[in-house]
Design a protein around this nucleic acid. Structure first.
Lengths: 231, 231
DNA sequence: CCTTTTTTGTGGTTATGACAACAGATTTGT
DNA sequence: ACAAATCTGTTGTCATAACCACAAAAAAGG
C-alpha cells in the first residue's frame, strides 16, 4: 500500500509524450498510452525527500514509474544495516518484480531520495486477463519482460563481483568487467568510493588501500570515478 | 551456439503432455503447444554428463527447457574458481535471461550435470513480432515474465543473505528467512554444509564453527539439513 | 556386517579486512 | 574568494574468518 502521499493528481496532468520515451512504454505512441492508463488504473502521487513509498512486508500490486526525482530501493537487515540495492530515476520503474509476482511480500523499502513524483500502474490486471482484450497490452508485457531480464543480469553481475572473498578480487572483477563492457581500458564508473565499496560489500578504506596498491603496481590508473586498466 | 550435441531428434518425439505441465507452458494445452513449436523453432538435443551446452561469451538466441537430466549454470572467474549459480531439472528452463536480451554475451556456462535432453526454443522471434500473429504467444510471454520475476527474487535473496560481513550474520539472515518462508521455526534446507557455505560465500569450517556456537547458545538446533530456530 | 567414501565438527595459525581516527584534497555554497 | 562540507587516501589496531589438518560421524556400497 502507498503511504504518506501528499496529493493525488488527476490523470489529465500526465505527459504521455514523456511516457512514450520510457523503456516501459517503448514503441507505444502517446495516444496509445493514454488509452492504456484506464486499464492500468494509473495514479500519480508525489513524495517528499525521505518519504517511504513501499515498506518491506508490503505486497505491491502496482509498479512505480518515476516521473521526476529519484527512488532508492533499500534493504534493511535485522540489525538496521541498510544496503542500497538499486535506484530509479526519471523514466525508470521499480517494484515491477513484486507487481509481477502477486502476493509476494517485499524484502525492500522504496523511498524517495529527493522530492519525487511517481506514476503507479497496476500491471497485475493485464497479466491475469487475456492480452487480446486491449491491443497494446502485449507490447507492454514484452517491454516488462525485457526490463525484468535486464534487471536479472544486473543482479547476477553484482553476485559475480562479490563472489571473490578478497577486496582485490572483487575490485578487479568489477573493473575488468567494466572495461570489457565499455570496450575500452579507459572508462568512468557511476559510483564514488563509498558507493563502490557498498556495492562490492567491502569497507571503503580497505577499498582505497587496494586501489592505491594496484596503482603502485602499475596495474591501474584512476582519478575520481575515472579508471584506466593496465593491459 | 549449441555445442557437442550428439543427435538431433525430430519434433514428433516431443511429449506435449509433459510440456503442458511445465511452468513455461502452464495453461496451454498439449495441442496448443504442438502448434507453437514451429514458431519457436523447437529443437531437441541430447548431452552427456559434463558436456558444455552454452559457453560464457556465447550469445544465446534460444532458451533451454530441460526434458530430462539436470543442467548446471556455472560462473568461472578470472582465476578459475567456479561458482554454481543455478541448476535446472526436468521441466525447468535456463538461459532465458539471455534469450530475452538479444546480443548480450553470457557470463556463465551451462553444462550437463548428468546425461540430459534439452529442448531449445527461440523465443526471440516471438518477442520481436506482434503477439497477435499466433494466439498462444501471449500466454507464453506472460509465463516467461512470471519466471523471470521469480528468478529475480531468488537472486535478490542471495544478495541479502550475503550482505552481512560476518558468517553469523549471513547464516542468521538465511535461516531466519527460511523460517519465515516456511511459516515455522522448524524446517529443512536444500543444502548440505558445503553447499550452504558456497551459497553464503563463506568457508565451510567457519560455517560449522558458527553453527556449533549458535547451538551452544541455545539459539538453534540442527541435525543434517534440518533446523529449528529458537524464538 | 564390514569397508570405503563422504560429510561434518574442532582446533590451531595466519593473513586479511573491518573499524576508527585523521589529514589532505576536492567540491559546494554563499 | 572564503568557509564549510564532502570525499579520498593513509595509518595502526584488533577481531574475524580463511586455510590447513585431522578425527568423529554418517552414508554408501558391497
Amino acid at each position: 500500500m502507498k503511504q504518506d502521499q501528499k496529493a493525488i493528481r488527476p490523470k489529465p496532468d500526465l505527459d504521455f509524450s514523456f511516457l512514450s520515451r520510457t523503456p516501459l512504454f517503448l514503441g507505444a505512441s502517446p495516444e496509445e498510452i493514454e488509452a492504456m492508463t484506464a486499464c492500468l488504473e494509473a495514479e500519480t502521487r508525489t513524495y517528499e525527500k525521505g518519504q517511504m513509498i513501499y515498506r518491506a512486508g508490503d505486497t505491491a500490486a502496482a509498479l512505480g514509474l518515476v516521473l521526476c526525482g529519484r527512488i532508492l530501493i533499500v534493504h534493511d537487515d535485522f540489525w538496521g544495516n541498510a544496503t542500497v540495492m538499486d535506484s530509479a530515476g526519471a523514466g525508470q520503474i521499480f517494484a515491477e518484480t513484486y507487481a509481477c509476482t502477486p502476493g509476494e511480500p517485499m524484502m525492500v523499502n522504496a523511498e524517495a531520495a529527493e522530492d519525487s513524483q511517481v506514476l503507479f500502474l497496476n500491471v497485475g490486471r493485464i497479466l491475469r486477463t487475456c492480452s487480446r482484450s486491449c491491443e497494446h497490452h502485449s507490447r507492454l508485457i514484452r517491454n516488462l519482460l525485457a526490463l525484468s531480464a535486464r534487471k536479472n543480469l544486473n543482479l547476477s553481475r553484482k553476485i559475480f563481483y562479490t563472489a571473490s572473498k578478497s577486496v582485490r578480487g572483487r575490485l578487479l572483477a568489477y573493473l575488468s568487467d567494466q572495461a570489457v563492457r565499455n570496450g575500452s581500458h579507459s572508462f568512468t564508473i557511476p559510483f564514488n568510493r563509498q558507493q563502490l565499496a557498498d556495492y562490492l560489500n567491502v569497507d571503503r578504506s580497505a577499498l582505497s588501500k587496494e586501489i592505491g596498491r594496484l596503482q603502485r603496481e602499475g596495474a591501474l590508473k584512476t582519478k575520481k570515478n575515472w579508471f584506466e586498466m593496465g593491459k
